[in-house]
Design a protein around this nucleic acid. Structure first.
Lengths: 133, 133
DNA sequence: GCTAAAGCTTGCCCTTAGGGTAAGGTCAAC
DNA sequence: GTTGACCTTACCCTAAGGGCAAGCTTTAGC
């Protein structure tokens, strides 16, 4: 069995994460404590690399560390039901939708103010007036 | 002249901010150091209340403390040009638009994954498969 | 007048998801 | 044998506050 173990810097390059993130995920409990060399260097195998990739994808979709912890638990659980996974995903989807709505509300109000400000050399400014009200 | 000075708790109630936020804004330099009673209690007048209202409105539009510091500087400056204000607003508007775009991208990808997950009792799950790839 | 409650003060730790830096140990190449 | 690249832990920093503790002040009730 070719162990093919790599250090954290290699793992970082291969996954696109930073070494700092990988240590952070370990400390946060997403990963089991990595094996170490005699000198204390962390060592990763291909399975752990795959988990790191999973985490990266989940982060890219905006899942929090806590949510990813749950997702990884389901991922590792052969008795999971996809319903549980979908529930987690839809909860997060709702969070995203709400954030989008909030931001769009801000955007709309701010755009209105900006549109009504002539943006010239005069001190009179509809934006400041709007904030003052 | 009826001074009409109020303590921080009253100011908080009247502005809808928390006392903690008001102290935070003072410490961050948005407000001049509030006058104090002999016992050290902060006192606010109507002008300062108006500034707090301004800050609250600006926060509601998503401006950061640093941006609000600039906005307040312009607000207080009789020689300002509305062009400067509008520039700040449009910079922030661009930030918001970018954030919306990022979130909508996440939303779209996550929705696709969720849609392709049947969400039943089986362990096979398109969401986990998608995160694994 | 006394006392209890409510309000104020500062100071410290906590949150998210890491980034940055320092001091020091380790490994590989030359 | 030494230099440079890599690794380790530990600490402080971010934004915008929330929460709590210890202690002082003011107000209200009796």
């Amino acid at each position: 069995m070719m162990a093919n173990l790599i250090t954290i810097g290699q793992a970082a390059k291969q996954t696109g994460l930073s070494a700092k993130m990988i240590r952070h995920y370990e400390e946060a409990g997403l990963l089991l404590k990595a094996n170490r060399t005699e000198a204390g260097y962390r060592l990763y195998n291909s399975q752990q690399l795959q988990q790191l990739g999973f985490i990266k994808q989940a982060r890219a979709l905006g899942f929090s560390i806590a949510q990813i912890s749950s997702l990884l638990g389901l991922w590792r659980d052969p008795n999971r039901s996809s319903r549980e996974v979908k529930q987690l995903a839809e909860l997060h989807l709702d969070e995203i939708k709400q954030k989008v709505a909030e931001l769009q509300q801000m955007q709309s109000l701010l755009q209105q103010l900006a549109d009504s400000c002539c943006g010239d050399e005069q001190p009179q400014c509809a934006i400041l007036d709007g904030l003052q009200k």
